[in-house]
Every structure is written in structure tokens, then in C-alpha cells.
Computed example of a mutant assay.
Amino acid sequence: MARPTSPLLSRGAILTASLDLVDVAGDFTMPRLARALGVSASSLYHHVPGGRSDVVEGLRGLVCAGRMPDQRVDGEDWRAFAERWARGYRGAMAAHPHVVPLLTAQTVSDPEVLASYEALVEVLVQDGFDDATALHVVAVLDCFVLGSALDAGAPAEVWDDDDERRPRLSRAVRAAESQPGDRSAATFELGLGSLLTGLELAHRSGAAAEGA
């Protein structure tokens, strides 16, 4: 049997190659993606008819696959689910921080990712949040997670260390650097706990006001 004259393509191969480009260069173009795969640019559109936007949304699904929960477990309240959701989402995005700006530039439409968002809203509403507040909570968590993912991909030296002009900042930087583990991950854990505690207090206050 004769071998194909050009490499066999698939949607999965296209997404994997595009993620490799984004991880290295921070972005991709359809012509550059085609060159990386050794095919013509026109052949890509048989598998990603929407072109660049189709690929970007495919990257969302690829990066998040299996990382974002779509249902709560027994005995899990909204805070525990939101915590698990945020950790899974952050883990997915922090592994590929350069993809974050691409994803935030277009509407979320990947079915599996949307199912996880749906589950988060459902848990919040089931546990007493009204619809509008539930959406605000989702947006707050979304912004925090994506910001934390960008922090994970930041340079090792985030703040210019100048002990003479900024002694307090420099001292804080060195203190954080002396702690074991990843600074960005520790920052995420501090922020997530603070954020969820604040949301919990606001939720309790709102519930108390409604019952008064």
C-alpha cells in the first residue's frame, strides 16, 4: 500500500502542535502551524473549519481536559466545590500560562469546560445563592484563577530588587524566596482561602438580611 504523500492530519494533532507553539512563543498563526505540521495552511481547515478561533477554543478543551470538576461529591458544600474547581482550573492554566491571553479574548464554548461552569453555578444556587450573585462568584473565581495562572508564568524576578530605594519590598521579596515551595502556588492558596472566606461571609450576611 502506497504511503500518503503528505502527513496525516487530525484535529488532535493540530491542537497539540498549536499548544507547543503557544508554550514556546506565546501565540500561533495558521501558516506557522501548517509549517510546523508539514502541511499546507488550507488543509488545516478541513479539521478546524473556524480557523484560528476554532483552534483557540480547542486549546481550551485540551488544556482543561479532566481538570475541572463537573459535579459535586457527597457531603461537599459550595465552598468545598468552589475550592476544588478553582484548584483544578488553576492547575490546568498554570501548566500553560501563555494560552491564557488567547482564551480570554473569545467566548467560552468548549462543551466540557462549559459543563464545569454549569456545575459550579448549580452548586452555588442549590446552596442559596441567587442567580445573579452566583454568576458574580463565578466571574470572581475566574478572574482570580486566570490571574494566578499568569503569575505562575511570570519571570523568576517579578519585582526589581533594589534594597536602597525599596528596602521594604526587597525585604519582603527575600523573605518569600526563603520559604520552601513555589511562591506562586503559595500566593494562590493564600488568595483562594481569603477569597472564599470573603464570599462566605457575604453570603451569610445576605442570607441573614433576607431572614430578618
Rank of each mutant, 00 (worst) to 15 (best):
V138W: 06
A132N: 07
Q106Y: 14
A94L: 09
T133P: 08
P111G: 04
S116N: 00
Q106K: 11
A132C: 05
D127T: 04
A95I: 04
F129D: 03
G147E: 13
A132Q: 08
Y117Q: 09
V138D: 03
A92W: 12
L146Q: 10
A92H: 11
G147D: 15
G88F: 03
S109K: 13
A149C: 01
V123R: 01
R90N: 11
F129Y: 12
A139D: 03
P111L: 03
D142I: 00
T133L: 04
V121D: 14
Q126C: 07
R87G: 10
V100H: 08
L102P: 04
T104D: 15
V145M: 00
C143S: 12
V100P: 14
L141W: 03
D130A: 02
T104Q: 14
G88K: 11
D130V: 07
D110F: 09
V123W: 00
A149D: 01
A119G: 10
S109A: 14
L120I: 05
A139W: 09
E112P: 03
V99D: 07
L102M: 01
V138C: 04
Q106I: 10
L141S: 06
S109E: 14
A115F: 08
S148I: 09
V140L: 10
V145C: 00
D151R: 15
L146W: 13
G147S: 11
Y89I: 00
L141M: 01
D151I: 15
Q126H: 13
S116R: 00
T133A: 06
A94W: 14
P111E: 04
V123E: 03
E122Y: 10
G91I: 05
D130C: 01
D142T: 09
L135K: 02
A94H: 11
D130R: 05
F144W: 09
D151C: 12
P97A: 11
D142L: 02
Y89V: 01
P97N: 11
L120Y: 01
A115Y: 10
L150C: 15
H96E: 08
R90I: 02
V123T: 13
S109N: 13
D142W: 02
V140C: 06
V123G: 00
A94D: 12
V121N: 13
L120S: 01
D142M: 01
A92Y: 11
A119I: 07
D130P: 04
M93H: 09
Y117S: 08
H98I: 02
Q126M: 06
D110Y: 11
L120E: 01
A119N: 06
A95E: 13
V137C: 02
V123C: 00
H96L: 12
T133R: 11
A149F: 04
T104Y: 12
L120R: 00
S109H: 15
V140G: 05
H136K: 08
V140D: 05
H98S: 08
F129T: 07
R90G: 12
E112L: 04
V138N: 06
F144M: 09
D130K: 04
E122G: 12
D131Y: 08
V123D: 04
T104A: 14
R87M: 10
C143M: 06
A92F: 13
P111F: 07
A134C: 07
D131N: 05
A149Q: 00
P111V: 05
D131Q: 08
D110A: 07
T107R: 13
R87H: 14
L141C: 02
L103N: 12
V121F: 14
P101F: 02
V138M: 01
T133Q: 10
V125T: 14
T104R: 13
G128K: 00
D151P: 13
T133V: 07
